[in-house]
């Protein structure tokens, strides 16, 4: 048999623990492929979050650290400031990045910290069993919003790329999705850009990737992709929200 897809050098042999149909796996693969293509695996240092991707330190084939919940951008800052030649990235969920770690995220961006952030937005807390996330949609049913997210009581979702795009320190902020092969290809291009920016010394680069959580959304993998398209895409439009290189070129 001829393998259709080889495992990228950026991934170890360890088998993913992600649920069937979860797009965390695709996002890992994209990140790994980009690191391989940019030939940075021997100087990459990744920071894993607390969340479903907590074991990412076992999956990425480069030096890895497992940070406290939400603190990955601060840890990445310490690594990058100590070892400027390293290519430092964080991989974080929405609870990690936009709730408990909001301060660390915003200030790493404000400082223009020269790191790359892979932000997986699945609009829910996956690991802890499906609670409301800062990105859960109005009306979305979760374990802790059993009657739907009531914005009068639970407030509104945070659009991270739009928020960070207001900061001078943000070099690049793009929202992508991996729900179709075409979108996945665009996602990979954005991730590559976010790493290339770091190599070019451009500053803080974040790629927000809309992702599924079939398990906690209570949907089959196929229905989860449809739900993402029907609900997340309208609320979280894909696009580039800030691109300092483009601005410089204009």
């Amino acid at each position: 048999m001829k393998p259709i897809l080889n495992r990228p050098a950026g991934l170890t042999e360890a088998a993913f623990h992600y649920c069937p149909g979860c797009t965390h796996g695709i996002i890992h693969r994209i990140t790994a492929e980009v690191m391989e293509e940019l030939e940075i695996l021997d100087r990459a240092v990744g920071v894993a979050p607390v969340g479903c991707a907590v074991l990412a330190y076992n999956y990425f084939n480069c030096d890895m650290l497992q940070a406290a919940h939400g603190r990955a951008p601060a840890v990445a800052t310490g690594i990058k400031r100590a070892r400027g030649e390293a290519v430092v990235f964080t991989y974080q969920g929405d609870g990690d990045l936009a709730a408990i770690g909001t301060a660390e995220t915003v200030h790493a961006a404000a400082r223009g910290e020269n790191i790359t952030v892979i932000f997986v937005n699945n609009a829910i807390y996956g690991m802890t069993g499906g609670q409301m996330a800062p990105t859960s949609l109005p009306g979305q049913v979760t374990q802790t919003t059993p009657y739907g997210r009531d914005t009068a009581a639970a407030g509104y979702p945070i659009r991270v790329c739009e928020m960070l795009a207001t900061l001078e320190g943000t070099a690049y902020a793009a929202r992508v999705s991996v729900d179709t092969p075409k979108n996945a290809a665009a996602a990979k291009a954005a991730v590559k850009r976010a790493f290339q920016n770091q190599l070019d010394g451009a500053g803080f680069s974040i790629v927000e990737i809309l992702s599924t959580c079939p398990t906690n959304w209570g949907l089959s993998p196929v229905d989860a992709l449809a739900w993402l398209r029907d609900n997340l895409l309208p609320y979280y439009p894909l696009g580039v929200y800030r691109d300092c290189k483009k601005e410089a070129a204009v």
């Binding site: 650290l65 603190r71 690594i79 100590a82 301060a103």
Partner: peptide, 25 residues
């Protein structure tokens, strides 16, 4: 490197990053 962090929470995590990268911090 002197860096004023956004909080003590961030500062100690920066320390963790730098220590993990092998420098005295």
């Amino acid at each position: 490197v002197y860096l004023q962090a956004e909080s003590e929470v961030a500062a100690i995590n920066m320390v963790i990053g730098a220590a993990a990268a092998g420098v005295r911090v």
